Computed example of a mutant assay.
Amino acid sequence: MAAKLDELALGYASAIISALIMLLLGILGNIGIYTGAAMVMQELHMFYSLSVTGIIAGMIEAAIIGFIFAYLFGYVYNRFGKS
């Protein structure tokens, strides 16, 4: 029998990791490391920029997107996985 995933726990973990990665990318982008990746994030995320408010907004946006996709993955896994 396949183990069931806790969708909420998976979603929360993904949200936290997504927000922390966005924070790290913002910090590194501001000191001149990974500027290419920071520019790509600015193009892909609506609210992200290298300002303090842009980094916080990007963290919130990444957390929401990460939560939704991970929660949906857990739901689909539990729904259609072998039981």
Rank of each mutant, 00 (worst) to 15 (best):
A63Y: 01
M1Q: 09
K82C: 03
L44C: 05
A70I: 06
S18E: 03
L72C: 05
A9T: 15
F69I: 08
A57R: 06
G26C: 14
N30K: 12
L25G: 04
L72D: 00
M1F: 07
A63S: 13
L50Q: 00
I31R: 13
G74R: 06
G11L: 12
G36C: 01
A57M: 10
A70T: 04
G26P: 03
I33T: 14
I60R: 01
I64F: 10
L50G: 12
I56T: 07
L20A: 13
N78F: 05
F73H: 04
M46L: 13
R79A: 03
A37H: 05
A62V: 07
M41R: 08
I21P: 00
G36F: 11
I21A: 10
G54P: 04
G54A: 09
V52A: 11
E61S: 04
A70H: 00
G66R: 05
I55A: 04
M39V: 10
I17H: 10
E61A: 06
A9L: 15
M46P: 03
G26T: 09
L24S: 14
F47N: 05
I56M: 06
V40H: 03
I55W: 05
M39Y: 09
A38Y: 02
E7L: 07
T35N: 12
K82V: 11
I60Q: 02
F67E: 02
M1C: 00
I56H: 06
S51F: 07
Y71L: 09
Y12Q: 09
Y77N: 07
Y75E: 02
I64W: 00
G54T: 00
T53H: 05
A38H: 00
L10A: 06
I56W: 02
I31N: 01
L72P: 01
I27R: 12
I64M: 05
Q42P: 04
G81D: 02
S18M: 13
G81F: 02
H45K: 10
V76I: 15
E61M: 08
G11E: 01
G32F: 08
T53N: 07
Y48R: 09
